[in-house]
Simulated assay, not measured.
Amino acid sequence: MEKIDIIVIGGGIAGAATALGMVRRGGGKVVMFDEQLPSQRLSRGNFGLTWFMPKGANNPTYALWSRMATMHWPEFAAKLEEESGYDVELEWNGGAMHAIGEEQFNAYGESVKKMTDVCREVGLDYPVRMLDRDEFAAMIPSMRLGDEVSGAMYSAEQGHVNPLCLLGAMRYAFQKRGGVYHGGTSVSAITPKGNGTIELTTSKGKFVAEKLVVAAGHGSTRLLAELGEQLHIYPQRGQLIVTERVKKVLNFPILAVRQTMDGTFMIGLSTEDTAHDVQVTVEAMNSQAKGAIRLFPELADLNWVRGWGAIRVMTPDGSPIYEQLSEHPNIYVLAGHSAVSLAPVMEKQISDWILDRDIAPQISQFSNGRFNV
């Protein structure tokens, strides 16, 4: 039976970033298993924003964590591209969240003030400002704002990325540094052994590890239940639609609308409680299209060519879960939304935590046990 230092269950963006961080830091032999179920492939179906805004409006610790992550995105992407040879298509050109009407504009302004104060208390900046309608329009001169748009919340220190390229780059760099990747591999059982190791039963045989990282999205629920651990996550469907390729005219992404490097417009701002159903619906497509056209009326003239659905991994408070099991302290759990934005802290702070290196104080605030009330 093959013995391994660390096994990571889950080869999505969260698992891949963490596994990459551990091999970069000399974590020994690291093996990553990825089952690749169609309903679990959020890392291939998301919007691709590298944002901290407006995350953590009701959770200051999450706001700080998100800000820390995005501060390191340009450096993280540059190192990854150099190491892997992949272009992750990072455009670090800012991002905005548009407001409809004065009431929403004012609410955004209050949120910016609140989060600026929270970050200032721990010595971090929160480089977000409010743009009135004229300022917002001047920043995107090649597009016309809809009549109801009153302005936007904006930061120059965020952007967007190609999630498919990001995932491919991290997996390649992981293997280049000696990590072992097993795609199409299911894990049926986790068995802690009396000698402190962990035995995994998989579709490719049995493996033994000193440490285990469970980052399998909704697949983690079943695996952890067998260990007596209730993981507090639930599925939420999001749908996206994409246009034909056109001339690049949108200077930076908006929360619900972005234009990729190849010229396609992408729309995605739906939240649906549909369990693990990933199908697209006319109702959601219609609603999202109307919202996008309300922002940019000329989008009505484009051909919309493709749509898909993906299942988010959500927690009750929207913040991630990072848990070291009390009964089995060599088993770690990673779960939650926003893996793209948080990739730099997964690669650095989370891998350091698992390797018993420098432990970021924020991690203890994201335990699974915070929901046991």
Rank of each mutant, 00 (worst) to 15 (best):
I4C: 03
V280A: 04
G196V: 05
L231C: 03
I190P: 15
T185Y: 09
N251Q: 12
S39F: 02
A209L: 03
C165K: 15
Y62F: 13
Q236G: 09
V282L: 13
G48N: 09
L166Q: 11
L42C: 12
G309Y: 00
Q158W: 01
E157S: 14
R245T: 11
M261R: 15
R129N: 04
Q236H: 07
D134N: 10
I100R: 15
A289P: 14
M153N: 10
L166V: 01
I9K: 11
A169G: 09
Q239P: 00
L64G: 11
V213D: 05
P320E: 14
F47W: 14
G10Q: 00
I4W: 05
Q349C: 08
D117A: 08
G205A: 03
E110L: 11
G26A: 03
L49D: 07
W353E: 01
S326P: 07
S150L: 04
W308D: 01
D34S: 10
D132Y: 04
V373I: 10
Y154V: 06
A69P: 09
I350V: 15
R222S: 03
T201H: 15
M346I: 14
V305Q: 15
G179E: 08
A275E: 07
L167C: 08
V112A: 02
E121M: 13
E148A: 12
S341R: 08
Q175A: 09
V112Y: 00
A216M: 09
S188Y: 15
L227R: 03
G151Q: 00
M143S: 00
M115V: 08
A292G: 05
F105Y: 08
G151F: 03
R120A: 02
H218V: 01
G12D: 00
V280M: 06
A16I: 04
M53D: 02
M261C: 05
R41T: 07
I7Y: 11
E226F: 06
M346D: 15
N372R: 12
T197C: 02
L200I: 10
V208N: 09
N106C: 11
K206R: 03
V242R: 11
G45E: 07
E283A: 12
N195R: 00
F207S: 01
T315L: 02
L212C: 04
Q288L: 08
M68A: 10
Q230S: 10
R120D: 10
H182E: 05
Q279G: 12
N195K: 05
L355F: 05
S66L: 02
Q239L: 07
V112T: 06
G11F: 11
F371V: 02
E148I: 01
G219Q: 11
Q175D: 06
